[in-house]
Design a protein around this nucleic acid. Structure first.
Lengths: 394, 394
DNA sequence: GAAGTTGATTCGACATCCGCACGAAGTTCA
DNA sequence: TGAACTTCGTGCGGATGTCGAATCAACTTC
């Protein structure tokens, strides 16, 4: 968070502090930026005059005069966060203040051509917008989360194992062409990490968020910002070998990859082989909640194996939080398995002070995260600086 | 590097740019900071007047007027970088410009009590200083690198497997008490990562440096700065389980840890068991350079196993460079093993653009890195800002 | 030797930000 | 029900810092 708001003394920086909910009054801003109250007054006045900020009325007193609460100026702009899974899409609409207007789920088939999938996504967005009972609202940006590697900074899909026909595609360009608004593409685990980071008040410095669903991936927060690595591939552990795991053939051609021995898809397959045919990963969780013995055992094993890889990552990365998200982590068995492995395989020095928790946000975690990404672009502090004719400070 | 020099428009920032060799002239500073040349003139003038900087004469022309080369003001202050291994200490003395005055190695026994070891280290530093033929020089700071986990920000040694009697110790306090100067403690792999980062011009954004010696550890550079994690434990992979490794009992009580199946100590033990008694890890490298079959095979296996863990880290962290350092990585067999594993186990998307190289710096890599840490404290940009009466900018 | 480049300085104009005093609007406690 | 204290926000003068343009300086190229 320190890193993220290093430039917070510019008008755009002040704007961002309000946008992200870190400051709600002029006094907050003065504290956070270190600027003199008088300076803040001038800056805020300008932002109010230009229509970037709004006053909401008085807040609660902290023992003295009540602060005058600031918020982003309400306007008609709306961003969509779209989290595409293998078979479902989660779509959320948010106003510029980041408040959720509506979320919905719909069925898709990610194996269909990008144009087809994205056209249907676009229709869903427009439909949700129309259903929101405010004709003035208009779409101003989209964040798109995909279940596969996305290169940075280009935003292209790179060799996705579960999305045939998407390799090398730039989905942002397609969806932007359909919708006429800027689109930001991100990997699903990264989107969830960002969503979790925001949901917990942007306070965690170093965090790993695990997306345990059909496949298993991680998103990484370093120093209060999403970490993408050199090419945007950071966090992709689905083809990591699991120590002591069974030598199952993986789609990548190797044996014993995490995805192949612990991913939700592998559990579905194992259940099917045992004569328990279910539709998808959600079905596994359903079975587990009914105390289905085999499903529970498979989930626990999946957790143990996932935990084995996470243990390595925890040792290496020494995060302060490790968050479990995704369908599998809604089951007690999986979570218990992860806990067991991590605490067994990590040295105490790595796990003391480590908070290992399940995400409290539900199925729209990724949509929220990727919407924040779109908002970030829409409400660009640098653009505010430009508008106010200030050169961005170092 | 962007992150490190985000505050570079303050006097201290300008000082740091010169200190770290990124700027050698006023024109360089103007380019790097974005400040107007006139502003740079004023700032530099102040720094010259205050005795922080010096002019060295003219540099080489780039097609126009020759730049007037700036450097840190020469003074009598010297910092020591001390890299303690299990049996040897590497000591380097550096002037404030970071120029190496002298390096030397000496024998130590890290299993002896901290006070004893550090007293001998202190004597060595004073001895080296006395031998440097400049009576005016005086010690002003020490960086201390240790072969075990060091907590951050406290700088205490945490459950080191090879340093009995050091647990919970604050070596900086002891050595500071002996020498009367500030001491900074750091883990050895972190020190090497910093040394490598500096030796390659501070240009790499995301990097993993592997210290492969008696034991195996990593140091991590994120966004151009040493990454320590939540508690300073980042990079410690010595007790990570190796996929498909032999189930050797490790000092931590588990089986198949990286240290136990690939660390130099394990190779020495394996050679001894086979009737090839050698002194230490350096002996293994010696044997390998004489094409000793067993030593070579063991080194290659060690490389393969180390590479297996590194493959996971590369997938997770997506660095732009992976650097091999330490005694083992001076052998072709070990390096070949690492390369083989990494390229076998990583997806191409993680290794395209990955530079996998051996460090070009020798045995004093860690000493250089940790000396830079001491210099950083000694030549604190914030102190310069304070001295010049400027408030540090955001 | 003229033209073009690069490096560095001078100086006036301008914008910014702070310090401080002050006003506004609360809470706490006798 | 005040008095004292706290927190929040504003107005104004002045110190400070930064920039821009012009200029000088010194070298390379042709």
């Amino acid at each position: 968070m320190a890193a993220r708001y290093a430039h917070s003394t510019t008008p755009g920086g002040i704007y961002a502090l309000v946008r992200d909910g870190l400051a709600r009054s002029r006094a907050d801003l003065a504290r956070l930026t270190g600027l003199a109250p008088s300076t803040i007054t001038l800056r805020v006045e300008e932002l109010l005059r230009r229509g970037y900020l709004d006053e909401e009325g008085d807040g609660v007193s902290r023992g003295g005069r009540r602060p005058r609460v600031l918020r982003l100026a309400r306007d008609e702009r709306v961003v969509a966060g779209v989290d595409l899974g293998a078979r479902h899409a989660a779509i959320g609409l948010f106003d510029v203040a980041g408040t959720c207007i509506v979320t919905r789920r719909s069925s898709i088939d990610i194996t269909r051509p990008p144009e087809v999938v994205l056209r249907s996504v676009h229709r869903e967005i427009l439909d949700a917008l129309a259903a929101s009972n405010d004709a003035a609202r208009r779409l101003a940006g989209v964040g798109l989360s995909l279940p596969g590697p996305v290169s940075a900074p280009e935003g292209r899909v790179i060799s996705p194992s579960r999305m045939p026909g998407w390799n090398g595609i730039d989905p942002a360009a397609i969806l932007s062409g359909l919708s006429g608004v800027p689109v930001r593409t991100e990997n699903d685990a990264n989107a969830m990490a960002l969503g979790e980071f925001i949901a917990t008040g942007r306070t965690t410095r170093h965090m790993i968020v695990v997306k345990a669903g059909s496949s298993i991936g991680t998103g990484v927060i370093v120093d209060g910002a999403l970490y993408r690595g050199a090419r945007g591939m950071a966090g992709d552990v689905s083809h990591t070998s699991v120590a002591d795991g069974p030598q199952v053939l993986c789609s990548c051609g190797r044996f014993g990859c995490l995805d192949a021995v612990a991913g939700g898809r592998s559990i579905v397959a194992a259940l099917a082989a045992a004569g328990v045919p279910i539709d998808d990963v959600a079905g596994v969780a359903g079975l587990a909640s009914d105390a289905h013995p085999l499903a529970t055992r498979l989930l626990r094993e999946s957790g143990l194996r996932t935990g084995a890889v996470l243990a390595t990552l925890v040792s290496f990365f020494n995060p302060e939080r490790l968050v479990l998200a995704g369908v599998l982590s809604t089951t007690e068995a999986f979570v218990a398995g992860v806990r067991s492995s991590v605490y067994d395989l990590c040295l105490p020095m790595s796990t003391t002070g480590l908070e290992l928790a399940e995400s409290t946000v539900g199925w729209d975690l990724g949509a929220r995260g990727v919407a924040a990404l779109a908002l970030e672009e829409l409400l660009d502090p640098a653009a505010v600086d430009r508008d106010l004719g200030k050169s961005p400070r170092t």
